[in-house]
Design a protein around this nucleic acid. Structure first.
Length: 621
DNA sequence: GTAGGGTTAG
């Protein structure tokens, strides 16, 4: 007996089925060309099997055969068959937009469903802008959009970055009275958020009649994109007290990221407990986010605990652990973890090498760093990217090889970015290389990327050389170019709230106590041998004035607040947006001994752990 | 007589 392929079987099956339907349609030729509201003439019991055959196929050749048969039997133009056919060919998994366009253009009078499918298909393609054009064509031909059409076309505007299109759609949504559709409004929030119209995005949220978990999650992502990370955390409480929606795994994932950014350890632990209570802590992505959160909060023990507890570890888990060890100053352990990862049979990728190389640069492991940099491409076939180069430049720069680092940047295959020049500028500052520093500033200017911080580094170089004439020049240059310095900001978490401190800040409600406490601490530290390190301070002023200027750096205010507010022995965790200065480093080191407090300061992505008068990093940079 | 929204874990 001859074997019949499943495809042949299906085709013969629908041939049988379609002959009944065809007989019906033939009697009503107007169905084919005219308005297509004659579905009732087709017997449901005859058409349904054929429709479900069209719907169930996910093979393109099969769908094309069905197409041919529909044409032969004059059934194709009937929406009963055309709609599911278009659906199958236009959307994934087949998603043949070219084919879908051709058949769509042959269709005499598409309805709102068919337009919607095509708009959705455009939204998923490389030409989302065409989705909006089709939407306009649809309006011109008198077909009214429903809330799904609006949702699809809004998505097209998000993808194509069309602000104007989205605004038009929003106006139409209001006109048509679709403003109570939660899903549509969620897409609209996403639209405003992706166009940086955060106020508008929040307004849409406020006006929603019901907010489900996804709507709340979009609100969190709005806050996070808008650098309002603290507000993102506040959403967690609001969700838990709302009666109709609770945080889910996506909420937790985003909040853990927010905690990592804010150094909000206590809040992160709360989210962790919530994950455990709801069984999210078994998921790999949550565990990986937890590792990062704990590492970025300087709490490596907890990060390692999560890591150890994972039944399965992927490259992301290993990389998170390696990077965590690296940024916390445990370079050798990071390298050991890398070897362990290979023994476990997990292949490293480019980000793993970023972690390994940063481990070398943070711990000053020059030879190891070079070795990994070379083996990365030779053994693992991973070509170096800007981050890898950045680590090596940092490594060489710190080791005093500033000229070699400069040559390496010039020899790179990738275009140097502002960050890599800034890294070199930092090295120039450490090794007092004023001439190269000036050259680097010029490169930053070429990139139109120079920031106040870059000029401050240059100022640091000149002032440490005692070249006050040049200091005045740079200050004048900054003034002429309109460069304004933003004061550094330190944050500290206390009882679930984030407290912000800016140098010489007088806005905190407990300011008087904080300043008094800082004076008291300074007196105690001086007894223990602390002397304000004034060499790096910018102004050409007397020593006493310098000491006053240094006294109220933001991290010192934060530390004074912690000493004031927490019981003796509690660890003090500070996050700072700029680099910690030599003096504050010294201050924290001596304080850790005098007050018997562990102090953890995170500046940018680097940690300084102070315990019993020692710091985890060898020198303060 | 169908169809939709959030996450890019390091």
């Amino acid at each position: 007996m001859r074997a019949i392929s499943p495809l042949c079987f299906s085709v013969s099956a629908f041939r049988r089925l379609s002959s009944h339907a065809a007989a019906r349609v033939d009697n009503h030729r107007q169905c084919i060309t005219g308005p297509t509201n004659h579905t009732s003439h087709l017997h449901t019991e005859k058409t349904e099997p054929l429709i479900s055959l069209i719907k169930s196929t996910s093979s393109k050749p099969h769908l094309l055969q069905i197409h041919a048969h529909l044409i032969r039997n004059s059934l194709f133009q009937h929406p009963v068959f055309f709609s599911p056919f278009l659906f199958g060919i236009a959307l994934p998994p087949l998603h043949d937009l070219g084919y879908a366009c051709r058949v769509f253009s042959k269709f005499s009078k598409p309805d709102v469903f068919q337009y919607s499918i095509m708009i959705r298909a455009y939204g998923m393609s490389d030409s989302p802008g065409n989705g909006f054009m089709l939407y306009q064509e649809m309006l011109r031909s008198g077909v009214s959009p429903n809330s799904l059409t609006s949702s699809f076309v809004t998505n097209c505007c998000i993808k194509s970055g069309s602000l104007f299109g989205g605004l038009q759609i929003h106006a139409r949504i209001l006109r048509d009275g679709h403003q109570s559709d939660g899903r549509l409004l969620t897409t609209l929030m996403d639209f405003y958020s992706s166009n940086e119209k955060y106020t508008q995005a929040c307004k849409v949220f406020d006006e929603m009649p019901h907010r489900d978990t996804i709507a709340w999650n979009v609100l969190i992502s709005v806050y996070m994109r808008n650098q309002r990370t603290r507000d993102a955390l506040a959403v967690f409480d609001m969700m838990q007290s709302s009666y109709d929606s609770q945080p889910d795994n996506v909420t937790c994932l985003m909040l853990l990221q927010a905690c990592a950014n804010l150094n909000a350890l206590a809040f992160g632990e709360r989210v962790h407990r919530y994950c455990e209570e709801h069984g999210f802590d078994k998921a790999m992505n949550i565990c990986n986010a937890l590792i990062t959160m704990y590492s970025r909060c300087g709490c490596l023990e907890k990060a390692f605990e999560v890591f150890k507890g994972m039944t399965e570890k992927d490259v992301v888990s290993w990389t998170a652990m390696i990077s965590g060890l690296a940024s916390n100053g445990y370079g050798r352990d990071a390298i050991e973890a890398f070897r362990e990862m290979q023994r476990a049979g997990v292949s490293p990728d480019d980000q793993t090498f970023t972690g390994v190389l940063s481990a070398c640069s943070h711990s000053g492991l020059l030879d190891e760093g070079r070795m990994f940099f070379n083996s990365m491409s030779k053994e693992f076939g991973i070509s170096p990217n800007i981050h890898h180069y950045g680590c090596v430049v940092d490594l060489m720069g710190r080791a005093g090889m500033v000229d070699e680092a400069y040559n390496l940047i010039n020899s790179m295959k990738v275009k140097p970015d502002a960050t890599i020049w800034r890294t070199l500028l930092g090295a120039c500052r450490i090794h007092h290389q004023a001439d190269l520093g000036v050259q680097v500033i010029e490169r930053l200017i070429e990139l139109k990327a120079q920031e106040a911080g870059d000029y401050v580094l240059l100022l640091n170089i000149y002032s440490s050389l005692g070249d006050w004439g040049k200091v005045i020049n740079v200050r004048k240059m900054m003034k002429d170019r309109g460069i304004k310095t933003n004061p550094a900001c330190s944050t500290i978490e206390f009882r679930g709230k984030i407290h912000e401190f800016v140098a010489n800040d007088f806005s905190h409600p407990q300011k008087t106590e904080i300043y008094e406490m800082l004076d008291e601490i300074n007196q105690q530290l001086r007894i223990a041998g602390y002397n304000a390190e004034t060499v790096a301070e910018l102004h050409n002023v007397g020593t006493e004035e310098k000491q006053i200027a240094l006294s109220y750096h933001s991290e010192k205010l934060a530390i004074a607040f912690a000493v004031l507010s927490t019981p003796p022995g509690t660890s003090i965790r500070v996050a700072k947006d700029l680099r910690i200065c030599v003096d504050c480093h010294n201050f924290a080191k001596i304080l850790s001994a005098v007050y018997s407090r562990e102090v953890v300061i995170r500046d940018r992505n680097r940690f300084h752990h102070f315990r019993e008068g020692r710091c985890s990093c060898n020198d303060y940079w």
